[in-house]
Design a protein around this nucleic acid. Structure first.
Lengths: 160, 160
DNA sequence: CGGCATCCTTAGGGATACTG
DNA sequence: CAGTATCCCTAAGGATGCCG
């Protein structure tokens, strides 16, 4: 094991919150299940069918997502009828929606222009469609080109 | 091979732009390299060191990214000095910044609260920090809870 | 219906060593 | 400095089949 790898330790993330996020929810299956959850899917087999994942994958990932606190599992047992399981978004999970939308918006433009947009998101109050935007704290709308990116305090920079 | 798998064909994406995006740039290494590119990193070894990736990975992914049109490779040869290679963001690549920011914002909150924020993004005009927001087309700011998500036209729904 | 166990294949990714 | 080649390990993910 090299010095550098040792530094990175056994479970990387290298102190970057993007890396940390990807380690948690970066897997394709995870993201697709979160897409479904944000669409209101709650039942196991709906997750599997709609995300087009195998049952074992679905089971493993749902369990992971519950363990990570992005979903909550509720077992209903309305007396007389069969038990029902529900997986529902937590606040932590709901807060991932902007990331899903950002990925969707990019994909709509560049990755699958043929397909129509997935995930129509509307404002609950006024019904108007919702998009991801960049805004500065002064309230200006910021285009992707009008941005100055620099390393934040959490990112380890290395000399050139 | 099952009927369903055959339907999905050899390269899935199942008509969802989120899935398509993940297939293109979903790999951890890819995202980290795009983070670096958006930070202004242009040289091969800087990519490798700063993203903490091995050289072979770095080489493979950079090549992929160039092939997908997210980065452009320029070879400089200022007469008299050594040749220099640069990888620079294309517009397509720059448009991924909102997605990176959305992932970062989620991670800052939930995945690595200890580490400070990676990627400080500021508005080039006024210098104020930039964030990802949800806004509806009426201009209202929308919280993650005030959102009504429904399947868009591009998403294949399946009966329950 | 809502899973778990098992086995298999492929892609992600590192280590090491070598080249222009 | 900017890679390439090779080898190897692990995680992602599907197929099949069984269980409460």
């Amino acid at each position: 094991m090299s010095d550098l790898a040792a530094e990175r330790a056994d479970w990387s993330t290298d102190g970057c919150s993007i890396a940390a996020t990807l380690d948690l929810v970066g897997a394709r299956s995870t993201m697709l299940l979160m897409r479904e959850a944000s669409l209101g899917t709650t039942r196991f087999s709906d997750f599997a069918v709609r995300a087009q994942l195998s049952e074992p994958m679905t089971a493993r990932r749902l369990k992971d997502l519950v363990a990570s606190g992005l979903l909550e599992r509720h077992t209903y047992r309305e007396p007389g009828s069969r038990g029902r399981d529900e997986y529902r978004l937590t606040a932590k999970g709901r807060d991932l929606v902007p990331a899903l939308m950002a990925l969707r918006q990019w994909g709509d433009r560049y990755a699958s222009p043929e397909a129509g947009p997935t995930l129509a998101v509307d404002h609950a109050d006024c019904g108007a469609p919702v998009q991801v935007e960049l805004r500065c704290t002064e309230g200006h709308r910021v285009g992707p080109g009008e941005v100055e990116v620099s390393p934040g305090p959490g990112l380890v920079r290395t000399a050139s």
